[in-house]
């Protein structure tokens, strides 16, 4: 009985932030000590009908950046990680990949920012994509390195001896068998990019307004209702993904999914 109650309490407390942010995003004026905002209306949400509104644009800027980064990392990481996984120096490569993965992205941004400035990439859409790619790519490699194994390699070789060309083997053996790994990598990298703030703000130098950048901007403007709205938009795609398939929400190294 206690266990049940605890569990329900836990589930409710997990859902609470979602509801709280939603209510706050509908609010106007919230003076202390009122528990709820004094006015609740859809006024803040009207941005949905205005394609020139900041939030509307931020949502699509974020979406564009995250999709690009996720596609590039998933595709390039797949090919490159395969050679690394079967290389004799696999472990050296793995440790090298862990360095940028473990460093705080914003610190990475600090140390390579100079090169973005001299190439004119700061403050551009492309610059932010490249910077996020550099941070997310090692993570993609780490995901894939957990995936390539001796069994898969044997199947690939078997396909060759059965007469399969390199392309046929990719199409008929490797890609179908890698579907889950590819999806995992895609969604994980998408989320990393979607959640990123420090590096995006530094390399985008405030000009590339993604949703996370918007949250911080609204917070500094003391506009908590818009900030709450931006926050709510930020958690929508991951919640949608959770609804579709929860396995892609997180990557657990070395344990079966």
């Amino acid at each position: 009985m206690i266990k049940r109650t605890l569990q329900y309490g836990f589930i409710i407390s997990i859902g609470f932030p979602v509801v709280f942010l939603l209510v706050l995003s509908l609010g106007r004026r919230w003076a202390y000590p009122n528990i709820l905002p004094e006015q609740i209306s859809f006024a803040n949400w009207e941005f949905l009908q205005q394609s020139d509104s900041k939030l509307f644009q931020a949502f699509f800027v974020s979406l564009g950046i995250s999709l690009c980064v996720a596609v590039f990392v998933t595709a390039l990481g797949f090919v490159i990680s395969k050679f690394i996984a079967y290389s004799q120096r696999r472990n050296t490569f793995l440790v090298l990949a862990y360095i940028p993965y473990l460093l705080s992205p914003v610190i990475m941004a600090i140390i390579f920012q100079y090169y973005f400035i001299i190439t004119g990439l700061t403050g551009t859409f492309l610059g932010v994509i490249i910077a996020q790619f550099l941070v997310a790519f090692p993570f993609g490699i780490i995901i894939y390195l957990n995936f390539w194994n001796a069994q898969l390699k044997s199947m690939e070789e078997l396909s060759y001896t059965l007469g399969g060309s390199r392309w046929q083997t990719y199409k008929k053996v490797l890609l179908p068998l890698s579907k889950n790994a590819l999806m995992l990598c895609f969604f994980q990298v998408f989320l990393i990019s979607w959640f990123e703030y420090g590096l995006t703000n530094l390399i985008g130098s405030g000009k590339i307004r993604t949703l996370t950048v918007s949250v911080f901007n609204f917070v500094t403007e003391a506009n908590i209702f818009y900030a709450a709205l931006a926050c709510f938009l930020l958690i929508l795609p991951p919640m949608l993904l959770l609804y579709i398939n929860k396995r892609f929400i997180l990557f657990v190294e070395k344990t079966e999914l």
Partner: peptide
Amino acid sequence: QERHIVYLYQEALLFPHLNAFENIAFGLRL
């Protein structure tokens, strides 16, 4: 691919995404 020599492992290594029929048909489909 050009040698026409097939190497079989200790494990059967059936392609897990294909059924028995399709596993056998694999080389012919190539």
